[in-house]
Amino acid sequence: MNVGVAYADKFKQVWLKLEVPNGSTVRQAIEHSGMLRQFPEIDLEKQKVGVFGKVTKLDSPVEEGVRIEIYRPITADPELVERRDT
């Protein structure tokens, strides 16, 4: 089954397409992707993950063609950051 795994740090974005066995979970797909080796700062126990922008659990099964996203923690409180005029 083909899926994608996406992650972005401060400097670059990575989106990998890979094949995983049928019945794989979100966690298994992320581990299979190699993202945890490429970005050792990822902590799946603390960071949220999602599928197509919707937060999901690590033990959720994946379906053909989904994009799994690993979200970075929020580092600034949006209520304290000044608004930028655009």
Rank of each mutant, 00 (worst) to 15 (best):
M1H: 11
V3H: 02
V3T: 07
V3E: 02
V3Y: 01
G4T: 07
V5M: 08
V5I: 12
V5R: 07
A6P: 02
A6R: 10
F11Q: 13
V14A: 04
W15C: 15
W15G: 11
W15Q: 12
L18G: 08
V20M: 06
P21W: 01
N22Q: 12
G23I: 02
G23Q: 05
S24V: 05
S24I: 04
T25E: 01
Q28D: 10
A29Q: 03
H32N: 14
H32C: 11
R37G: 10
R37C: 00
R37F: 05
R37E: 09
F39M: 09
F39N: 03
F39P: 03
F39I: 11
P40L: 07
P40H: 04
E41V: 09
E41Q: 10
E41G: 04
I42H: 03
I42K: 06
D43K: 13
D43N: 13
D43W: 09
D43Y: 10
L44G: 04
L44I: 03
E45H: 10
K46F: 00
K46H: 03
K46L: 03
Q47N: 08
K48G: 05
V49L: 07
V49K: 07
G50S: 09
F52H: 15
F52Y: 15
G53Y: 08
K54T: 12
V55K: 14
V55A: 12
V55D: 04
L58H: 03
L58N: 02
D59A: 03
V62P: 00
E63C: 04
G65V: 05
G65L: 04
G65Y: 07
V66S: 05
V66N: 08
R67V: 12
R67P: 00
R67Y: 00
I68A: 05
I68N: 04
E69P: 03
I70H: 05
I70Q: 04
I70C: 03
Y71I: 09
R72I: 02
I74C: 11
I74P: 00
T75K: 11
T75I: 02
T75P: 00
T75N: 04
A76K: 13
A76C: 07
A76W: 02
D77R: 11
D77S: 12
P78N: 13
E79S: 15
L80N: 14
V81E: 14
E82K: 15
R84C: 04
R84G: 12
D85N: 15
D85G: 14
